[in-house]
Amino acid sequence: MIVKDEEQLAEALQRGDSEIHIEGDLVNGVTSIRATGAVVWGLVIVAIVSCIGCTLVTRNPTAGVTVASLIGTKPALTAMSLVWIAGGVSVLEQLRSYRSEGTKDGSLVLKNR
């Protein structure tokens, strides 16, 4: 499936599509999310959950700054959007479980393991 935004990507991940072609600006965010090491990844998950919780309760998304400082602004926005759309952080683990087949014609190709 070809995806161009976070909503399409979240849906493809939740369905467990065997192959996902990511296009456009989403490629950079997804590449950075997938390249994040295990320790930083744990901190990112905690920060994302905190950010979304704080935003829901106080309507102040300042915890997002923590996520952005760990993995960068575009990947942080992509990650938080995926979590919000999918309704949980498990979508990020699903994303990281896909194997990268590299880029083809400007799109990132992911295959389900």
Rank of each mutant, 00 (worst) to 15 (best):
L70N: 05
T73R: 15
G87R: 08
K111C: 11
M80F: 02
S81F: 04
A68Y: 03
R59W: 03
R113E: 12
Q94C: 04
V65S: 10
T78M: 00
I85F: 01
P61C: 06
S100M: 09
A76K: 02
R59F: 10
L82C: 05
L77S: 10
S100V: 09
E93L: 07
S69D: 09
Y98H: 06
T62V: 15
L77M: 15
V67T: 15
V89N: 06
R99E: 14
K111P: 02
G88N: 07
L82H: 03
Q94E: 13
K74T: 12
T58G: 00
D105N: 15
T62K: 07
Q94F: 10
T58F: 05
W84N: 12
V89L: 05
L95K: 03
I85Q: 05
L110A: 04
S107K: 10
A86K: 02
L110N: 03
K111R: 15
I71Y: 00
T66H: 06
K111Q: 14
V91G: 01
V83K: 02
E93S: 12
T78P: 05
E101I: 09
T62G: 06
R113T: 13
Q94S: 11
V57P: 00
S97C: 04
Q94M: 15
A63W: 03
R113V: 14
L77E: 15
T78Y: 04
A63V: 01
T62C: 14
G64D: 03
W84D: 11
Y98M: 07
T73F: 13
A63C: 09
K74L: 11
S107A: 14
L70R: 06
G72Q: 08
L82Y: 02
G88Q: 03
I71W: 01
G106I: 01
V83W: 02
L82I: 09
T78Q: 06
S97H: 08
G106D: 12
V57N: 10
T73L: 15
V91I: 12
V109W: 05
Q94L: 15
G102T: 12
L56D: 11
K111I: 13
V83H: 03
W84C: 02
S97K: 11
I71K: 01
L82T: 00
